[in-house]
């Protein structure tokens, strides 16, 4: 009596002219992801930000982009990895980062917009793009956040697509997730994930203390999306972040 494997081989051979490897499932590439540290966002992203790819978080001010990126870095630095924050607006707050759990000794902060007394004078945007390029090419960083939140979308749209394509290639080669924070999505097809962030909805405690903020994220694009497996994935999620004082009080 033929075995199941022999039968399968026999069926596949008879059908191979019309359907190659009819009974063998297609090999599936498992994409590595890095968790963001926020469960609902990880669920939305099917594991977290993709490693070796560009992820964009686009939204207006007070939409939780910075909090989400810092939560992501907190997880990466806790694994004894090094990360970088390229700050085009010079708006990074080390106190907030430390409060969220980022190990500051493992975070390289590049503050763009410094007064540079040289023949070459670059704008904040140019500085941040050059710095990101250098860091991606150098390799070894477990995550790089490119903070373009303060850049006007009209200016951001003028970033050449070749730049994003180069970032994508470098990120893929060095296995580094690049997270871009901006008011709008700029990377277009080079981005593996694009999240739209909506403004904060404040939660107040007793009418006197700002207690928490609720942020809503919508997944606009995900290149490496898993095939539909029957369960409907939520296209959007809402996550809540407490303020420093309320978290301390609850602890």
């Amino acid at each position: 009596m033929p075995t199941a494997a022999a039968l399968r081989l026999q069926i596949e051979r008879s059908l191979e002219a019309r359907f190659p490897a009819a009974l063998t499932p297609a090999p599936r590439t498992i994409r590595e992801t890095a968790p963001t540290g926020i469960a609902v966002v990880d669920e939305l992203l099917e594991g977290g930000f993709p490693v070796g790819a560009i992820s964009e978080i686009a939204g207006p001010a007070c939409s939780g982009r910075t909090s989400l990126a810092l939560a992501f870095l907190a997880g990466r630095t806790a694994e004894e990895r090094f990360c970088a924050w390229v700050d085009a607006e010079d708006a990074f707050d080390p106190e907030s980062a430390a409060a969220i759990g980022v190990r500051l000794s493992q975070l390289l902060w590049v503050r763009c917009g410094g007064a540079k007394k040289s023949a070459k004078s670059w704008t904040r945007l140019e500085q941040s793009l050059k710095a990101t390029d250098l860091l991606l090419q150098a390799g070894g960083f477990a995550a790089i956040v490119l903070d373009l939140s303060g850049i006007d979308p009209a200016e951001g749209m003028r970033i050449p697509l070749a730049t994003w394509f180069r970032f994508r290639q470098a990120a893929e080669r060095t296995r580094c997730p690049l997270v871009a924070l901006a008011r709008a999505s700029y990377a277009q097809s080079s981005a593996a994930v694009v999240l739209d962030a909506e403004p904060m909805r404040a939660e107040v405690l007793g009418g006197t203390v700002l207690h928490a903020g609720a942020f809503r994220l919508r997944r606009r694009r995900q290149r490496f999306q898993q095939p539909w497996n029957g369960a409907r994935k939520p296209p959007a999620s809402t996550w809540t972040a407490g303020t420093q004082w309320t978290v301390e009080r609850s602890a």
Partner: peptide
């Protein structure tokens, strides 16, 4: 690690 609202200075 806590999920907190960050500040942008």
């Amino acid at each position: 690690q806590e999920v907190r609202i960050a500040l942008r200075r």
